[in-house]
Design a protein around this nucleic acid. Structure first.
Lengths: 216, 216
DNA sequence: GGACTCATGTAAAGGCCCTTCACATGAAGG
DNA sequence: CCTTCATGTGAAGGGCCTTTACATGAGTCC
């Protein structure tokens, strides 16, 4: 018999129910989607009564919001590692960043669903909002470094560039990212689709693969 | 008292329950999101018992899928009208197309939710799949016309261009499109954000606003 | 006109979920 | 040892989804 954590049996108190519920939510969302996930299921998965979760989360949405918050924190770490401060050059790092984004959407489907598709208002929890801002901050930093490569006259707003890249990446992840959930026919893997889009976009900004090597 | 249709009272049989249920679904999804929508609510809204809808839809998901299908058909019409066969020139028409996309996402939130956010697998119903393909077909046609403006050597695949434009548009609509649902701070309205993105992208393809006037 | 048929709607019921409340348990600290 | 309080339980109310047997009446065919 499994308690989700793999620990031995337990007495009246679980000991670490909050963490167990979060893990249960991740497992169940991965299995049946954020809509199919139920509070009662999570409780069963953790081996407690249906009322126990309410000692740790105001309601079902609060649990999902907490999962989303953790997702954004993981996400921030992944993106930061991929960006790696723009080394060795901004273009290379940006390419890694995009791939890391798609990879996260594919590998951590449960997190990604909770973050973007569970219908959780980002403002419902200030913590959630801040976590999501931090994740976007990585993209913004990257855009700033990219824009700095351009000649001062005619530089586009870095924030706009960040939003463009975020949008196309999120769009690809939503429409084609997941292995088969809402699959559509694609002539190429999503990673290549994104890479091509970003390359074309940057060329449109006047940033060729030659302008990259940190000059200026 | 309202029967949703505004008709007079009715006898044992409703007369037009299927249509009434679809309208109820649209109203309820617009009000409370696709997750908050319930089959029983739709039945109440139409003034029938909770079991009546099962005479017209296999289950709750089938109703949502039907709403999504109708949404894609509306969508196709809107996009086709905006594209208007690429007149007066492809760039102008593409700009209209993008704006029409965002406008649809904003004005027809209920349809858009059912189409993209309700967790309906496009393959669950062949009709749904075909309707969504037709909508994308408008974008593909537009991309083909655009690509044809370029010199034959170095033309990118039109399908890829269509996917890029679809992705960025859908990404913007998902992340920032709706008035306030999952709002994030934006320095500019979504329409401008999209227009700028597409302009930069097309410049990256070598298509300036000058290359537009239907020459070859 | 009358009888039959069959699509359409109803009532009732089973099973599940969300949430709350009063109550039980036992770990921690004086 | 004994009290306190966070944590978990059981039971219950209300709602939803879906199925089943039954009711109704519009259309059809003689």
């Amino acid at each position: 018999m499994s308690w989700g954590k793999g620990d031995g049996p337990r007495g009246y108190h679980h000991g670490n129910l909050k963490e167990a519920l979060v893990r249960a939510a991740l497992a169940l969302i991965a299995e049946k989607g954020p809509a199919g996930f139920t509070f009662a299921d999570a409780a069963r998965w953790a081996g407690v009564s249906p009322a126990a979760p309410y000692r740790h989360f105001r309601d079902r949405d609060a649990l999902i919001a907490d999962v989303a918050r953790r997702g954004f924190e993981e996400f921030t770490g992944v993106l930061q590692a991929a960006w790696n401060d723009g080394r060795p050059d901004a273009m290379t790092a940006l390419d890694r960043l995009g791939k890391a984004y798609l990879d996260f959407a594919k590998r951590e489907q449960a997190y990604y669903s909770a973050m973007f598709e569970a219908g959780v208002a980002p403002d419902s929890d200030p913590q959630l909002r801040e976590a999501s801002e931090r994740a976007f901050g990585v993209l913004r930093t990257a855009a700033e470094k990219l824009v700095a490569l351009m000649p001062p006259q005619g530089r586009p707003p870095a924030l706009m560039v960040a939003l463009h890249i975020w949008s196309v990446t999120h769009g690809i992840a939503s429409l084609f990212g997941r292995g088969d959930a809402a699959r559509r026919v694609l002539p190429m893997p999503p990673e290549e689709l994104l890479e091509a889009a970003v390359l074309i976009y940057l060329r449109g900004l006047g940033l060729g693969p030659d302008a990259t090597s940190g000059r200026s």
